[in-house]
Nucleic acid binder design. Structure first.
Length: 867
DNA sequence: CGGATCGAC
DNA sequence: CTATGTCGATCCG
């Protein structure tokens, strides 16, 4: 590439430096001053791929700002005046609804991970430490912060800032244990408190405060555990403490208020060693912080305010180990906000800060002053959010967690550039994700692949399928297609990536789960009516995919790579293992032209037609294009029966399905996947499905006893979907889904700019889409079907939603009860920001800033992306 | 719907 | 050498 390292452009450098942390350096004796810190960071950063990408992102932000400023220029005084009036009308309304009656507390553990590590290893006490790795730090202690070492900074840079820095590896099990201890305390003050990650939580103590007024003093008394005291539970901790010569922090003995005074006496406690907390909000929070420290030896900071947004900002005010309260009065709120930098507001990040700064807005009061202008420059959601902030409005109650919306896993590694490695990596991610999904009993319809190339450019590619996915195979079937497309898109260059991730979203609602459940039942009941033809193409290279999964994994992908590297007598020529050569497949041999003709005749006639599915060769009768397409779709997608069979573990209908279903599921799955032929045990009313073909290997019979609630036949043709899914999965297991690695080619002339890429010159056919009537040039059925699918998708979704006239059931998933860690943060972590009444607003200059990559020739940009 | 971005921890 | 992982929200095309 060009050597355009415009390091000089000062406006660009700002962003990175700010991120890397020159904020508040108290310039301690052994610390570094801002300039020194920035210089070191810059030296360590300059010229790296990472930095180049940061510059690029910065430029994009600058462009957004530029657009915004252009927009601003066009605003007339007239418009501004009008906007002012409208906004102010809203302000009055908001003021009238201002609610100051709640007492919200935000608790924030001080330098949590670092504090835990220091507690458990006195050696670290006086040293600058950080928790994380050479690649990335999660947090640092206050000593290290004086050197500019901060969270989200890579360890190797931190080391340059502070050569004596001790980097401690993450130990999530420990943190989560401590976190649990803290939460136990918090729950006493608000059983519905809302944890935000491991080290933060919001509490609504409004009720507690009321009750507390009637409490006797003893109930507010806590006993101090002086270090001389013996016979205390936390003796081991005290011992460690003594070794470390730490004497300052008082250790309280936790009073669980069930102990009588004489019991306390027996334990060496007396009233002289006790503290009584008052009944005010401040006293409550002091009590909480005391109890936390006594129980965990860790300090916390806290904020008290009438809403979550303010409470959060308060907890930041006096940290570490402090608290602050905004009294519940309008003027107190406004006074607090007056000079507060907007960056301190939760939800205002680096980019928003910079955009607002371009408008001369730095503090919250300035945000208020510019309210009219903002209403013209930003989207409705954004400026309303800004208005809330500037008025100090936020949510006054803690909303329960909604249902999870997605689940994902991703990994960073040193460059991987062979298709083989990438596919096996992808499979590994799918496997992990499938496990996680299973833990929560979730299935989703959308699979998203995330890639970051070695230049730190990130891409995501998503695909939504009609039947939901949850198992490794199902997810991988979709993900590998996405990956294949990306590999092809840069061909003949290798795809050089440093990160890959897989996400599943679009989870089924309770109703949809039930629905699928019923559908499958009706399928089973009607099983006899259906005959099958077995598709048996010449085997193609499915060994490639199965290779990885069948080998009893001798360690992960990375383990294997490591081992391989150590053996490293390089025999492999990486260029040989490109995906395309590996996945060629000539299976699709149905008489496409003929079938297509039938299809084309279909749309406008009510006549029932018989056609042969070009994938499974099954004869289908239909008067309905959708049905036809659905069938083909399922055949091609290779989605699985298990979805449709698996039932929500929490039985929402209250019917007793639990006895029946697990067995049902396992046996059915086992049957389908392993091709076993043994009988399924059934009792009541059995239904058998048998393959009409004579192919011995596919002979099947399944006898299922559906639960009563499942027997009702669905009148909809959705049952046909399920039926097709089942057939496909059972009788045409993996080979179809796995060997069609024909990276579908997009027709050149349609779909505009979206993704012209890669064209493998197989032989093109031209098919006419029966829905939109456009000609589709294609090399394979898959791509054609995908097009038809897109055309039809909307209608189907509509159909689905219309069906849902069941009463809505809420799906209570205790998100934080079962935390699984992987990497930097907890999986169950909450990311919605409760600090505002409205959820959150991304910001954009409202009138679209045309995206850079789209503006130019898309072929070009795609090439550009991967260098 | 899919992709990019932002923000939080 | 060496720049995270997971999730939700929003906006745009």
């Amino acid at each position: 590439m060009d050597n355009m390292k415009k390091v000089s452009s000062s406006s660009c450098n700002d962003g990175l430096l700010l991120r890397m942390g020159l904020n508040d350096n108290k310039a301690g004796m052994q610390g570094l001053d801002k300039e020194r810190i920035n210089k070191i960071i810059m030296e360590a950063t300059k010229g790296s791929k990472f930095y180049e990408n940061e510059l690029k992102k910065d430029q994009q932000v600058n462009q957004r700002i530029e657009k915004m400023m252009q927009l601003k220029e066009k605003i007339t005084a007239q418009q501004l005046l009008k906007a002012q009036m409208q906004v102010d009308k809203l302000v009055i309304e908001l003021e009238q609804n201002r609610n100051l009656s709640s007492t919200i507390v935000h608790i924030d553990m001080d330098a949590f991970y670092a504090a835990v590590e220091m507690r458990d290893n006195p050696e670290l006490k006086e040293k600058p430490i950080a928790v994380g790795s050479m690649s990335m730090l999660s947090t640092s202690n206050y000593h290290a912060r004086r050197f500019g070492v901060r969270a989200a900074m890579p360890g190797f840079i931190a080391k340059r800032l502070c050569p004596h820095l001790t980097i401690v590896p993450l130990n999530f099990e420990k943190y989560s244990k401590v976190s649990k201890e803290v939460r136990e305390i918090l729950a006493e003050y608000d059983p519905n408190f809302m944890p935000m990650g491991l080290d933060e939580a919001y509490l609504n103590i409004t009720e507690h405060l009321e009750e507390r007024l009637n409490w006797p003093e003893d109930r507010r008394r806590f006993f101090l555990n002086t270090e001389s005291t013996t016979g205390i539970d936390c003796m081991t901790m005290s011992a460690k403490f003594n070794e470390g010569e730490v004497s300052s922090s008082p250790v309280l003995f936790e009073d669980n208020s069930s102990l009588m005074d004489d019991e306390h006496e027996q334990r060496g406690l007396s009233l002289e060693n006790s503290v009584v907390f008052g009944t005010s909000a401040e006293e409550v929070v002091k009590e909480i912080r005391f109890r936390i420290e006594q129980k965990t030896q860790l300090t916390a900071s806290a904020g008290i305010a009438p809403n979550t947004m303010l409470a959060k900002m308060c907890s930041d005010r006096n940290k570490p180990n402090g608290q602050y309260r905004i009294s519940p009065e309008r003027l107190a709120v406004l006074a607090f906000l007056k000079d507060l930098p907007i960056r301190k507001v939760p939800g205002i990040g680096k980019v928003t800060e910079k955009m607002l700064k371009a408008l001369g807005i730095v503090t919250c009061s300035e945000l208020y002053q510019q309210r009219a202008l903002l209403s013209l420059l930003f989207s409705e959601v954004s400026w309303r959010h800004f208005l809330d902030i500037s008025l100090g409005l936020g949510s006054t109650h803690l909303e329960k967690d909604g249902e999870r919306k997605s689940m994902s896993t991703e990994r960073t590694f040193s460059e991987v550039n062979t298709a083989e490695d990438q596919y096996s990596l992808c499979r590994e991610l799918c496997r992990d994700l499938a496990q996680d999904l299973q833990k929560e009993g979730l299935k989703g319809k959308t699979v998203t692949l995330k890639l970051k190339n070695v230049n730190f450019e990130v891409k995501t590619r998503a695909s939504t399928v009609l039947s939901s996915v949850s198992t490794e195979e199902e997810i991988f079937t979709v993900a590998k297609d996405l990956l294949g497309t990306e590999i092809d898109s840069v061909a003949p260059h290798p795809l050089r990536i440093r990160l890959m991730g897989v996400r599943v979203s679009g989870f089924l609602t309770e109703e949809e789960k039930k629905y699928q459940q019923k559908s499958i039942t009706s399928f089973l009941r009607s099983g006899k009516e259906i005959g099958f033809l077995r598709l048996q193409p010449e085997k193609s290279n499915q060994e490639y995919f199965t290779k990885n999964s069948e080998a009893p994994h001798r360690g992960s992908f990375f383990d294997q790579k490591r081992a391989a590297r150590q053996l490293s007598s390089e025999n492999i020529s990486p260029n040989e293992s490109r995906g395309k050569q590996l996945f060629h497949d000539d299976r699709a041999s149905a008489n496409i032209a003929e079938e297509t003709k039938k299809v084309l005749d279909l749309p406008n006639s009510n006549v029932w037609e018989i056609f042969t599915c070009p994938v499974c060769f099954e004869k289908q009768s239909s008067n309905n294009l959708e049905e036809l397409n659905k069938h083909i779709d399922e055949c091609l997608n290779g989605m699985c029966v298990k979805d449709t069979v698996e039932i929500a573990k929490n039985d929402s209908s209250g019917e007793n399905t639990s006895n029946f279903l697990p067995q049902f599921k396992n046996e059915w799955v086992g049957k389908c996947q392993k091709n076993e032929t043994d009988q399924l045990s059934g009792t009541d009313q059995s239904t058998s499905v048998s393959d009409s073909s004579t192919d011995n290997s596919t002979e099947k019979s399944a006898q299922i006893v559906p639960d009563k609630s499942l027997r009702e036949r669905q009148p909809s043709n959705l049952s046909d979907i399920a039926r097709n899914v089942c057939m496909k999965q059972c009788f045409f297991p993996k080979q179809i889904s796995q060997d069609n690695e024909d990276h579908f080619d997009k027709p050149e002339d349609t779909e505009g700019s979206s993704s012209s890429c890669f064209f493998e010159a197989k032989e093109d056919r031209v098919l006419v889409c029966p829905v939109c009537n456009s000609e589709q040039k294609t090399t394979n059925l898959m791509s054609f079907n995908r097009h038809v699918d897109i055309c039809l998708n909307k209608g189907l979704i509509q159909e689905l939603t219309e069906k849902q006239d069941f009463p809505t059931k809420t799906y209570n998933m205790e998100k934080n009860s079962n935390i699984v860690f992987s990497g930097g943060l907890s999986k169950g972590q909450q990311c919605t920001n409760p600090s505002q009444g409205t959820k959150r607003s991304g910001l954009t200059a409202s009138q679209s800033v045309s995206k850079k990559p789209k503006s130019s020739n898309s072929k070009h940009t795609i090439k550009m992306f991967f260098k």
